[in-house]
Design a protein around this nucleic acid. Structure first.
Length: 631
RNA sequence: GGCUCCGUAGCUCAAUUGUAUAGAGCACUGGAUUUCGGCUCCAGCGGUUGGGGGUUAGAAUCCCUCCGGGGUCACCA
């Protein structure tokens, strides 16, 4: 309808206005509840054009439009806003169209370009936590939303499976794991621990021993024991120690931190773990075997977690296979004069012209840095998916700068698809107690949290739900659907860019703006439809205010899907759904459906209910949330 | 300190391509069912949109400034 009015105005611009008008001057908005109308046109720009008062301009616009657009029944003008009322038949036709189209609001699948969506991308030395949940739910949902917008989508992740942090877990396991009576070290099999949890345990174990050793060294230094240490180090220590004299508390603390760093560098554990990394890079068979074994445990653990999350991937990238990539791109950049080499052999890119810094892309020893890897990986993906039009990187906002630089370099190197690369940057998840910090043990484990929400869904639903006739498996499945639905909705309803507060109590609520509230509306409609049976024609039905309100909302659905896609934001869909379901509950409370005597009216209401249920179900699916028929 | 993001009701969030009286949920108070699932609905309470200035017919939204908070400024990832 908006497009129709727009084209009428544009086509008749000469006759109406005596001049061409710009499309952006035609602004629509949804008519506010307190005024009569279905659609509102803002008349201020036209007032300027005609040199009339806004009221007169709006009046003139209304008179013009009512002659040219048959669907318009009448209009009214309030302070430069033209409120248009559309004919009842228009809305009934809209409903018929919505109800008859099973993919209403979605674009033809694969009708648009291929996009890679990267999300999750964990380290293999620790289990997944609450932050990963936001990442995974977001990435998965955005991928689904892009599909609904017609894109072909490849879901992917890059697994950070190498580096010093992995070696820390490996070394700690070799050294500190107790042996059982068969002489074996701890494994997921003999402990029953989930693989990622076991490996994470040894990562923590490493840190404990590492800190203890550093403290021991520190004690030696402070008490004057200096044998066995490099003279330079002791020199440095003494310099720091003397610098503490006469300083205030804060300054002393800073200096002590530096001394601690010094001591950490002297630990045998750090030396050994670095040695292990070198061995790994040299493909030492024993180290490689250990690495493979422990990563295998982690992958088994992650697989369980991903399954519970309900996310999946089409293509996996491993950092152990990509970390050497990007060397070619360094040559390419040098050839294209985008990069330059410094005296010491390191390679840099100068982005000061774009308001950024100079950035290193290759170390002086010829090894790659993070940026080099990411450049190489990006090109690698383009090779794997030649029709790739762009990429979405679901990564926390602490890496905003990194991605700005990454995309800029790709652009400077002349890759057209760099323009369609998007950093789906999301804010940190805070707890009521403050920030999540792994060192302080305030991290919320993903598995534990999912278990908790499912358990509380069980407690709450067992009391109030409609569970009669369900098998135990069906019940367990239902609790999972409700618990996970609540959790996902809670994390997705907030604008991704924003930092958000995670309140465990609110996340398991069933009322208000929550996942279960939407699921409940869907389940209630399903039960109604089962009772209703066959649904016939509704041509002669009169449209009530409540019905019309819902049809209006339903007809906005396509633009909601488009907006969610354009902004990579599941929150747009979540907020729309909540509005829709509130309107539906209002309607359902005020208007009888099954008991309605007039068959046309009854049919119309049933079609309306079914359309709402369909949209709710399909949209929740875009958020990764299931809609049970009973709950 | 440089760059960057953010600050909306007691709390959690909408509205940020400028547009009518800034909206929801939670919490709190009071109501609704001879009716289809009460995990429902209705009403009330609650705001100087961090402060100040500017641009505009019109500012939560754009610009400047101050205050407060986060992130980032590694030859880490």
């Amino acid at each position: 309808m908006e497009n129709l009015i727009k084209s009428v105005l544009l086509q008749n611009a000469e006759t109406f206005f005596g001049a061409q008008i710009e499309e952006k001057n035609i602004q629509f908005q949804v008519t506010r509840k307190e005024f009569e109308g279905d659609l509102t046109l803002v008349a201020f720009p036209f007032a300027k054009l005609w040199k009339l008062s806004p009221q007169d301009a709006a009046q003139k616009l209304g008179e013009l439009l009512i002659q040219h657009v048959v669907e318009i029944e009448k209009f009214n003008v309030i302070q430069g806003f033209l409120n248009i009322v559309l004919k009842e038949n228009y809305w009934k036709n809209q409903l018929t169209e919505i109800a008859s189209n099973e993919t209403f609001g979605w674009e033809q699948p694969n009708s648009k370009g291929t996009l890679l969506v990267e999300y999750s991308s964990p380290n293999t030395n620790k289990p997944l936590h609450l932050g990963h949940l936001r990442n995974n739910f977001l990435g998965f949902s955005v991928a689904e939303i892009l599909k609904a917008n017609g894109h072909k989508v490849v879901k992917t992740q890059i697994i950070n499976d190498r580096g010093i942090h992995i070696c820390k877990s490996m070394l700690a396991w070799e050294r500190f794991s107790p042996l059982n009576d068969k002489g074996e070290r701890e494994t997921p099999q003999n402990t029953g621990l989930k693989g990622d949890k076991l490996v994470g345990k040894y990562y923590v174990e490493f840190d404990k021993h590492f800190n203890a050793e550093a403290k021991e060294i520190l004690n030696q230094w402070e008490t004057g024991v200096v044998e066995g240490f490099k003279p330079e180090t002791i020199e440095q220590f003494k310099k720091f120690a003397n610098a503490r004299e006469g300083k205030d508390e804060k300054a002393v603390e800073d200096i002590n931190a530096k001394i601690k760093e010094l001591a950490k560098n002297e630990t045998s554990l750090l030396r050994d773990v670095k040695e292990m990394l070198v061995k790994w890079e040299a493909r030492d068979p024993q180290t490689y075997l250990l690495w493979n074994t422990m990563n295998g445990w982690v992958y088994d653990g992650f697989a369980t977690t991903y399954k519970m999350m309900g996310v999946d991937f089409d293509k996996l990238y491993y950092e152990s296979e990509t970390y050497l990539l990007g060397k070619d791109i360094v040559d390419e950049g040098l050839n294209k004069n985008v990069f330059y080499r410094k005296q010491d052999g390191s390679v840099w890119v100068d982005l000061t012209g774009d308001g950024l810094d100079e950035k290193l892309v290759l170390r002086s020893d010829g090894t790659a840095v993070y940026m080099t890897q990411d450049l190489g990986t990006a090109l690698d993906r383009k090779k794997d998916f030649e029709d790739m039009e762009g990429m979405v990187y679901t990564v926390g906002n602490e890496q905003d700068y990194h991605f700005k630089v990454l995309f800029l370099i790709l652009k400077k190197l002349g890759y057209a698809w760099a323009d369609k690369c998007f950093h789906l940057s999301y804010g940190m998840v805070d707890l009521p107690s403050g920030k999540m910090k792994s060192r302080e043990g305030t991290v919320v484990d993903a598995d534990d949290l999912m278990d908790e929400v499912i358990t509380s869904a069980k407690e709450m639903t067992s009391e109030r739900g409609h569970l009669e006739g369900m098998s135990n498996d069906e019940k367990e499945n239902l609790f999972r659907q409700i618990g996970m639905g609540g959790l996902k909705y809670y994390l997705l309803k907030v604008d991704p860019k924003k930092r958000m507060m995670f309140n465990p109590e609110e996340s398991i609520e069933l009322n208000g703006n929550t996942g279960p509230f939407l699921q409940y509306a869907h389940a209630r409609i399903q039960s109604l439809l089962v009772k209703a049976g066959e649904v016939g024609e509704f041509q002669d039905a009169l449209l009530g205010a409540e019905e019309k309100e819902i049809i209006k909302l339903l007809s906005q659905y396509p633009s909601v899907i488009k907006e969610a896609g354009d902004h990579y934001s599941p929150a747009v869909i979540a907020n729309y759904l909540f509005e829709l379901v509130k309107a539906f509950n209002h309607f359902y409370q005020a208007v009888p459906v099954l008991i309605e005597k007039n068959p046309d009216v009854k049919n119309l209401r049933l079609v309306l209910c079914k359309s709402v249920a369909d949209i709710v179900k399909r949209s929740l699916l875009l958020l990764g949330i299931e809609s049970p028929n009973k709950m």
